[in-house]
């Protein structure tokens, strides 16, 4: 396998956890949560700081996810208890997190060259030659764990209630559940996943950077939308697997357009934004054509 291809697949897997987090808020809760831009970096910042401070990488990863959940909880509280519109609540969290991330890292960039990471741990375990060789196995393992957990969780009583709340909060309130509590939980879960993704991506990249979350939500949306092409009206587990596939396809597209110099690396964010805008537009057009009404 060429290195371009394997790096696209590895990145697709590691970033797919971000995409799954975006899916939880964007599709299940019906909210565009911009906290992700900050919580992705937060995951990286917490991981880099902890690893450099000597915390075992696996614990650093879990700590990152926990901090992401906290960030999501803050957005959830801003939205439900302080009645700030969800989009603005996300922007406030994202902006605040920029300073938090700088505080955590103490500087704008922390390299992870001379330290053990979860990749080097896994490389030793699997007797591989290079750290990066462990990226695909790590991605598969992490994705399998995340999907397994989510499929279990969203089939519990609490999980059903979250799905119902995102679809229609009148219904869940009429059935005696606080919609605020469910929304906060949804924000927390989504941002825990996004921070987890940030943690893994920074270890793959070999550094954490305070700017690395910029555009994260659009990358996640691109993966979700590409994935949904394969997942029309399918079961939850299939939808999640499709998002992972969408994330890998997105990375392959990026690798293709950069390697063939169709798009310069500097224009990548613009390219992705246009891609997402067009994809959402086409989805809407095809739904109108099909006369489908979504309640």
């Amino acid at each position: 396998m060429s290195s371009v291809l394997s790096s696209a697949i590895a990145q697709g897997l590691l970033w797919s956890i971000l995409a799954i987090g975006i899916y939880v808020t964007y599709r299940l809760l019906n909210i565009s949560d911009l906290t992700s831009e900050g919580s992705f970096t937060l995951g990286a910042a917490v991981t880099a700081f902890s690893i450099v401070a000597g915390v075992p990488p696996i614990l650093a990863v879990l700590l990152a996810a926990l901090c992401g959940a906290l960030a999501g909880t803050v957005t959830g509280l801003l939205h439900t208890k302080m009645h700030i519109p969800s989009l603005l609540a996300g922007i406030l969290s994202m902006t605040g997190l920029y300073s938090v991330n700088l505080r955590v890292m103490g500087k704008a960039n922390i390299p992870l060259n001379q330290v053990d990471t979860i990749l080097s741990n896994l490389k030793d375990l699997l007797h591989l030659a290079r750290d990066r060789g462990a990226a695909i196995p790590l991605g598969i393992l992490a994705v399998a764990l995340v999907i397994g957990l989510l499929v279990w969780f969203f089939n519990t009583e609490f999980g059903y209630a979250i799905v119902a709340c995102g679809n229609n909060d009148h219904m869940i309130i009429a059935n005696g559940v606080s919609s605020d509590k469910l929304k906060i939980a949804g924000f927390a879960i989504a941002n825990a996943l996004i921070a987890l993704s940030g943690s893994l991506v920074c270890q793959y990249n070999g550094y954490a950077d305070v700017q690395m979350g910029i555009g994260a939500i659009v990358v996640g949306l691109a993966s979700v939308i590409i994935g949904e092409v394969f997942a029309k009206d399918k079961s939850f587990v299939f939808v999640l697997l499709s998002i992972v596939l969408g994330s890998v396809i997105y990375r392959l597209i990026v690798a293709f357009v950069i390697n063939t110099s169709i798009v310069s690396a500097n224009d990548m964010k613009l390219f992705t934004a246009v891609l997402v805008a067009l994809a959402i537009w086409f989805t809407d057009l095809s739904q109108r054509k099909g006369g489908k009404k979504h309640a």
Binding site: A161, V163, A164, N167, M171
Partner: peptide, 19 residues
Amino acid sequence: LLGTCSNLSIAENLSIARR
């Protein structure tokens, strides 16, 4: 449309009301 959740199945909707 307000009394039920369209993304969940009939049985899942009833299970929410059961609890």
